[in-house]
Simulated scan of single mutants.
Amino acid sequence: MAVPGGVITTVLGSCVATCIWDPVARVGGMNHILVAESGSGPTRCDAVGVNAMELVINGLIHCGARRANLQAKVFGGAKMIDGLSDIGQVNGLFVVEYLEREGITCVNKSLGGTLARQIRFYPAEGRVLQKSIAGAAVPPPRRKVGSADGNDLELF
């Protein structure tokens, strides 16, 4: 949460930020989710993402927002490292589905791609500025196994 006239800022790669505000009460807040879900298959757990969403929503209600008035904008979820799993897509999908399930209108989103983003959220207004950060994507890890001399091993 922030004071009126304030700004909340973050930088995102595969992480996802949800900017949520009540335009009537003129209060807002933002979360930053590193990994929305843990585990896989039948042992998948979304407790981390749910907790991040509930903390910001409950904080807004505590500051005078009404749940029925809440609106959201979602950012991030980039694929930052080629050749690895796309955790950014999983994070983005989690937040979008969560908002739908909870009946919170998502008025805009900027998800995916391969660029990092800098986000500036003006919570009293619901206004968000996004700046793409070029060159932030990381190439796949290099793997050098063995050499002509013998036993070299380089995984990074």
Rank of each mutant, 00 (worst) to 15 (best):
Q89S: 14
G13M: 07
Y98K: 01
A148L: 15
G103P: 00
L12P: 04
A72W: 09
V96W: 04
A36I: 05
I57C: 08
A68S: 13
I20N: 03
E102Y: 10
T9P: 00
V56P: 06
P140V: 01
Q89P: 00
T105K: 14
L70T: 02
W21G: 02
M53Y: 02
I87S: 08
S110E: 12
D86L: 01
V35L: 14
V90Q: 06
A137K: 12
K131C: 09
I33E: 03
S85F: 05
G112L: 02
L155R: 08
A134H: 14
G59P: 06
G41M: 07
V96S: 11
P4S: 06
I61N: 00
G126K: 08
R66C: 07
G88V: 04
G135N: 13
T9W: 04
S38A: 10
V27I: 13
G59M: 04
G103Q: 03
S147P: 00
R67V: 02
L55E: 14
G112T: 01
I104W: 01
G39E: 11
R143F: 11
R120V: 07
R26C: 04
R143P: 00
G49E: 01
Q118C: 11
H32L: 15
I61T: 05
D82G: 15
T114C: 09
P23W: 06
G5S: 09
A65C: 03
E154Y: 15
G146C: 05
V7H: 04
T105Q: 13
G49A: 06
P4I: 07
E37Q: 13
E100T: 13
Q71E: 11
S110G: 02
V56M: 03
I133S: 05
P140L: 09
E154L: 13
D46K: 11
P140F: 06
I20D: 00
K131T: 15
P42C: 07
C45Y: 08
G6D: 02
L12A: 07
H62G: 10
I81Q: 14
R143Y: 09
G103V: 00
A72V: 09
F75Y: 15
A124G: 12
D82L: 09
L93T: 15
V74H: 01
L12T: 05
M80K: 01
A17R: 01
G103T: 06
L111P: 01
G49F: 01
N108P: 00
M1R: 06
D82P: 06
R117H: 09
A137P: 03
V145E: 10
Y122A: 07
A17H: 00
R127Y: 12
D149R: 14
G59C: 07
R67M: 02
A47K: 09
V56I: 14
V145Q: 10
L12H: 05
F121M: 04
C106Y: 07
T105N: 08
D149T: 14
L84D: 11
V56D: 01
G146F: 08
V16A: 03
Y98L: 03
S85N: 10
A72T: 06
P4C: 02
A72S: 12
V96P: 02
V16I: 09
I133R: 13
G5P: 11
R66G: 00
V90E: 06
N151W: 10
D46C: 13
I20Y: 03
A137N: 05
K144R: 12
R67L: 07
D152W: 11
C15K: 07
K131R: 15
S38Y: 13
